[in-house]
């Protein structure tokens, strides 16, 4: 357990940065699937999330290493210290998260845009951009918010490959070393820790959800009835 605790900070740092990146990128993509007036642009952007979901994380990491570290020399290849060394692994980890989030988000965004309040807002003279970003996105974000637990779980799983590819110390690489040396207690500890993280995040989401969306408290029972 000590070993696990020792590497946890590094993994949490990586996963947190990846989460922020993933959410930002996911939201950006989702908005880009509805926002542009040009249909071809919307079409083009909407092909990205399915591609993102289909990319093997280890491969993305290797390609990023190759392009940004070797060909362009922009980012360092390894290390646990410094913001620069965090960029490539965090992007690698964020790709599947962003892709998944943007798929959910753009669905609910389109739904939200069909809701009456959007019409109302438009009728009141709010600009298209304001409606889409201000009203619809905020409401559409709620369903995506409930995915947080799964997303964080996915990120933790993703560190196994990402930390290996980038030779970073952390939970994921510890898992690989532990499996290689058949160190069952360490593997168990890692599994328990990651499950705890998932459960905690899910719990927090459940608790926070009604607070940020008061409709839920009213609506859910209504539907169930």
């Amino acid at each position: 357990m000590d070993v696990v605790a020792g590497v946890l900070p590094s993994t949490i740092q990586l996963a947190a940065v990846a989460l922020v990146l993933g959410v930002a990128l996911g939201a950006l993509l989702a908005v880009a699937t509805v926002l542009p007036r040009a249909a071809w642009l919307r079409q083009l952007v909407s092909t990205l999330p399915p591609v993102g979901v289909a990319l093997p994380t280890f491969w993305v990491g290797l390609i990023l290493l190759q392009v940004f570290s070797f060909r362009l020399g922009l980012f360092p290849a390894m290390g646990d210290d410094g913001v620069a060394s965090l960029v490539l692994p965090a992007v690698t980890l964020a790709v599947p998260a962003a892709a998944g989030l943007s798929q959910v988000l753009s669905r609910s965004l389109r739904e939200a845009l069909g809701e009456p309040y959007v019409e109302t807002a438009r009728a009141k003279g709010a600009s298209r951009l304001r409606v889409q970003l201000g009203h619809a996105l905020r409401n559409a974000a709620l369903p995506a918010f409930t995915m947080l637990g799964l997303t964080v779980g996915g990120l933790l799983g993703g560190t196994v490959v990402t930390e290996t590819v980038f030779s970073r110390a952390g939970l994921g690489r510890l898992a690989v070393t532990a499996v290689n040396s058949q160190d069952i207690p360490v593997v168990q500890a890692i599994v328990v820790v990651s499950a705890l993280v998932f459960v905690t995040v899910t719990l927090v989401v459940d608790l926070v959800y009604p607070l940020i969306d008061p409709r839920i408290a009213v609506r859910a029972p209504a539907l169930a009835a």
Binding site: A54, T57, F58, Q103
Partner: peptide, 22 residues
């Protein structure tokens, strides 16, 4: 990680989360 959850999640939870309680 890449995978296991991502694709299915994307489509599955979309349905449920969209209208909670449906």
């Amino acid at each position: 990680m890449t995978s296991t959850t991502a694709p299915s999640t994307a489509s599955t939870s979309a349905g449920s989360t969209r209208r909670p309680g449906s």
